[in-house]
Design a protein around this nucleic acid. Structure first.
Lengths: 264, 264
DNA sequence: ATCTGTGAAGCGGTTCACAGCA
DNA sequence: TGCTGTGAACCGCTTCACAGAT
């Protein structure tokens, strides 16, 4: 998951719910596909299916943008594409810098989805002098010494951090100091930024851990019945005692199951 | 953000809230760092700061796991690490296959966060015969013809899709048919899966678009002190007419590119 | 007849504030 | 006294169900 930050203390009820904003790109993608197939209109039902949401939610979402549909008919694809693009700010060009050109940075640099939606890779930046000048995805890597200059000259306001976790915060600080106000962070660290700067986080490890949690539950359910075994088995494996003594599984979830067994 | 899927129709009031589960990896990371520095205990306040959340939320989250803290003192670091690991299912080994070894797949294969938390890259799979046998991050790439065999033999239940969008659904279908029940999808597509299969999505383009939305708002605010200049002004700039026939597409897709690509 | 737009109800998650324990 | 654990208030998002437009 990625985490948003400080989106106005709800001063005035100006505008669109965050959850809706997060889905607009989804709708936009589905609409773009329809547009390419020259489909003139879609119903909320069809578009919702294509975007993987339910139709009530979609209609509610669109209602925040305005009344762009036609009752009894549906939505005009081209018109909606335009309205959503405008709402998201994609009708303008956003120069982006990517810092840290390892495997991940290179993957991002070559990602088609960037260029295709108003984003332009303004520069690739890496601290390794050996990388400097080397073209990645057709763009020459620049040295991090020039970070501030690049950002100021190109008027970059969005930065992507794909560096090791250890240097992410300092890279972040430099980006912010140079004028960047939105950051997409791939490093597994909590970045601290001043007010007014947005940070979104993409964390591969976290996503996998969430999957593992649900996977574990599934496994536990199939072979239910031995739930009685409880944590005791697991507890025998390597449980650092909390404090002085007892504490032995005082309380669990409402169901008290919590398997802990079942390999893949 | 990534999107969770079908987590039981809330039949009964099962365990831990999804939002809490999503934060457990965050706490775990912070705790691991403390553990490495041999810090014995933390208060909810300190740990919350390290994880980037507020302390009330953290305490509430932990309350779903049980009473693992000591009033007046705080939480035992080692003990909490163990409890959260167990809750997330990280005390067991999870073999993972990565399908699609482009730049992104290679980045994932080499990502340290995998191995460090109970995940093991069981296989790298790619459809390109030229890749077969070539080692990436020390692991030889295998051809996708063998996908089913690999999954069954290694008992893989988690799959990562890092292929181009065009083939993501069929890769997904094969993974599921072979027994995979959790999927982490990096391709910009909505995957459809049968009940009981979890999908989480990581979409770089969507994250950027959300940032762009907020970035645009910031820019708009600076210039007006209080004015409520409605969006309709912008609508006058270049709006494709809502209705009025003409599908004969003048501009087919404002951003002229398909979401068909993913890694480079 | 059909499909959008939306008030209202429902639900899950966050925050508050304080009781309870060390 | 200090900090956890938690009921209850609160808030935002989702879902429902239907009024309203074509």
């Amino acid at each position: 998951m990625a985490t948003g930050r400080t989106h106005r203390p709800a001063t005035r009820s100006r505008g669109i719910p965050e959850a809706t904003v997060a889905r607009l790109p989804l709708y936009l993608r589905a609409l773009t596909a329809l547009s390419e197939r020259s489909v003139p209109t879609v119903s909320s039902e069809e578009l919702a299916a294509a975007a993987g949401v339910n139709s009530a939610k979609l209609r509610k979402d669109f209602s925040y943008l305005g009344s762009y549909g036609t009752r009894g008919v549906g939505y005009d694809v081209e018109y909606l594409v335009y309205q959503i693009s405008r709402e998201l700010g994609l009708t303008q060009d956003w120069p982006v810098v990517i810092v840290g050109i390892g495997n991940l940075g290179a993957a991002l640099a070559g990602y088609g989805g960037f260029a295709s939606r108003g984003f332009r890779v303004a520069a690739l930046i890496d601290a390794d002098p050996a990388m400097t000048g080397k073209p990645v995805a057709g763009i020459p890597v620049q040295h991090s010494d020039d970070l501030e200059k690049i950002i100021e000259e190109d008027g970059v306001s969005i930065g992507v951090i794909a560096t090791p976790a250890g240097v992410a915060q300092q890279v972040c600080d430099r980006l912010v100091a140079a004028g960047v106000t939105s950051i997409l962070n791939f490093a597994p660290t909590v970045l601290s930024v001043p007010d007014g700067v947005d940070v979104r986080k993409v964390d591969l490890s976290i996503e996998l851990q969430i999957l593992a949690f649900h996977e574990q539950r599934k496994a536990g359910e199939e072979s239910n019945a031995e739930a009685a075994a409880e944590a005791e088995t697991a507890a025998a494996v390597a449980p650092p005692a909390p404090r002085g003594g007892s504490t032995g599984g005082s309380r669990k979830g409402p169901d008290g199951d919590v398997p802990a067994v079942m390999p893949a």
